[in-house]
Write a protein that binds this DNA or RNA. Structure first.
Length: 163
DNA sequence: GAGTTTGAAACT
DNA sequence: CAGTTTCAAACTC
């Protein structure tokens, strides 16, 4: 109940007991978890646990306390629907597969999708094998692979600016 | 401290 | 379920 608040026309007090009870009831009717913590796992306020529902941040980059994940001291996950998120693990120890998954989860709008990464890697490998078959010198082989990489990047950049 | 930004929750 | 409104906390100056 309110106590020493500055609210006007307040019904959250003993005088409106019934009204208050009904309000709580209809609130819980809509969402049974309305008065429960949104952070599961670790004890309150620690860097443990995870956000049950994820955040929906649009402009804060999830790096300000407007973001529920950031405020709870946890990283955003794929259950978030945030845009432009910078609150995620970017560890250099991550292997390639984890990085690809990370791209998929956090930048759904990116053109560098797992499929694109695979395609690029595949054509670079093909180029390297071609050089091997033609018994090119290491320098020539490098040149062929880098040429191919350049073509791939050009296509990716073109696709990015299409939108 | 006033004014602005932000996003969850409520609402439609 | 998607779009809109509300509003208090976070933030900025």
């Amino acid at each position: 109940m309110c106590n020493n608040c500055d609210c006007s026309n307040c019904h959250n007090n003993a005088e409106h007991k019934m009204k208050r009870h009904n309000a709580i009831k209809s609130c819980l009717g809509r969402n049974p978890d309305a008065f429960r913590s949104k952070i599961a796992g670790g004890r309150s306020g620690e860097a443990k646990g995870w956000h049950n529902k994820g955040c929906n941040c649009k402009r804060s980059g999830c790096l300000k306390k407007y973001c529920e994940c950031y405020e709870a001291n946890i990283k955003c996950t794929s259950s978030c629907k945030c845009v432009g998120c910078r609150n995620y693990d970017d560890s250099s120890e991550m292997n390639l597969e984890e990085k690809i998954v990370n791209v998929k989860d956090k930048w759904p709008e990116s053109v560098i999708t797992p499929a694109v990464v695979e395609a690029v890697c595949g054509s670079l490998l093909a180029q390297a094998e071609k050089a091997e078959r033609k018994a090119q010198s290491p320098v020539q082989a490098e040149h062929m692979v880098l040429d191919e990489f350049g073509r791939c990047l050009t296509q990716i950049v073109k696709a990015m600016f299409k939108n």
